[in-house]
Amino acid sequence: MASFTLGKYLPYNSLIHKMDPRAKIIVMMLLLCAIFIPAGFIGYGILVVIVTSIVLVSKLNLKFVVNSMKPMMFMLVFLLIINILVIKTGPILFSLFSLDIYLDAIMQTFYIAIRLLLMIMITTCLTATTKPLELTLGIEDLLKPLKVVKVPAHEIAMMISIALRFIPTLIEETERIMKAQASRGVDLQEGKIKEKIGGILSLIVPLFVSSFQRAEELAFAMEARGYSPGEIRTRYKQLHMKYGDYLAIVFGVLLNIVMLTLSMVF
C-alpha cells in the first residue's frame, strides 16, 4: 500500500515542478494524444525517450514510476491470451500445441503495454510535480472558455481537487483499518476464500462509513466558512505563463505532427 504513489505530490525542486500548471496539463493531453497515434516502432521509441527524459528531469525515481505498472501485469497477460486467440494476421511466429501464434498478436499486446506504461508515466509525472491546489487552478482556467456553454468550470475543478486531495487520506485510512482488522485476526494474504471475503467486507464497510462522514464534515466546514460555488472570487495565487511554458506546448504540438506523419508513412 505504501508503494501506491498515483496522485501523490512529491516535493522536489525541478524544471517540471516550476512549470505553469496549465501548460503542464496541455502538454500532458498532447502527449496522451501522441501515444494513441499508431506510429510503429520508431514512434514509440521516440515517445519512450521523451517521456523517460521528462520523468528524469522532474527528479522522480524511474523505478517507482515503473513499479506502478505491476498491478497491470494480470490484465496484460489476459490481453495477450485474447490477442493470441483472436488476431490471425502477419507472419506466423511459432506454433504452440497446434495453435499458431502470429507476430501481430504479440506486437499488439506489446503496443498496449507500452501505451499503458507511457500513460502511467505521464500522469504520474503531472500529479507528482504539481501541487493539488495548482492543478485545480490550472483545470479551472482551462475550463473557463467553456463557461459560455454553461459548463461549471469552478465546480468541476473543486470536485477534482477534493477527489485528488482525498486519495492519500483514503489510502492512510485503508491502511489504518487494515491494521485494526489484522489485529482482530483478519488475514488477507493467507486463509480460505470465505475468510478473505469476510476480511474484505470488514475493510470496505468501515471505509464507506468514514468516507461519508468525512464528506459530510467537509461540506459543513466549507459552508461554515461561507463557501458558495457560484460566487465570483479573486485569487491569491496568480498563474503566469512563461517563455518555457509556451515552448513546451509548441513542442507537444510538433510531436503530434511528427507522430501523424510517421503513422502515414508506415
Partner: peptide
C-alpha cells in the same frame, strides 16, 4: 503472525472506526 496477534490484543486510536 496470527498466533502472536491472538496473544497481543491491540486497540487502535479511535477504534470505533473498525466496527462493520
Amino acid at each position: 503472525l496470527k498466533s502472536l496477534r491472538k496473544n497481543v490484543g491491540l486497540v487502535f486510536q479511535f477504534p470505533e472506526y473498525q466496527l462493520f
